[in-house]
């Protein structure tokens, strides 16, 4: 499946990754060759093969619904770029 400039810009936007047009042009080429390599998968007959998500086919373990974590907001916010009164600050979203 060929890759267009618009595909790269779309993926960059979905991933919230700033790319200028020059960078995007470079990635069209790189990603195109990677996808060409990946397209070899289409040659494999996988009819009736269940997808494998976990190498041991394990499923998510459940536990009792009990509080096990303590409130460590202050400690965890020490590595945040900008906080005030326990809140993470970002540019205004709603005017």
């Amino acid at each position: 499946m060929a890759l267009e400039h618009a595909d790269v810009q779309r993926a960059a936007h979905l991933a919230r990754l700033g790319l200028d047009d020059n960078e995007a042009a470079r990635y069209v080429d790189d990603l195109g060759r990677i996808l060409e390599m990946v397209d070899q998968l289409q040659r494999v007959d996988t009819d009736g093969v269940a997808p494998l998500a976990h190498p041991l086919d394990a499923t998510q373990r459940l536990r009792a619904d009990e509080v096990t974590e303590s409130d460590e907001r202050e400690r965890f916010q020490r590595c945040a770029p900008l906080v005030e009164k326990g809140l993470y600050l970002v540019p205004r979203v709603v005017e």
Partner: peptide, 15 residues
């Protein structure tokens, strides 16, 4: 389906 699901199916064959 063409990529992720296909790759996970091939993953089972590899295992």
């Amino acid at each position: 389906d063409a990529y992720y699901k296909k790759a996970q199916q091939v993953r089972r064959l590899i295992r």
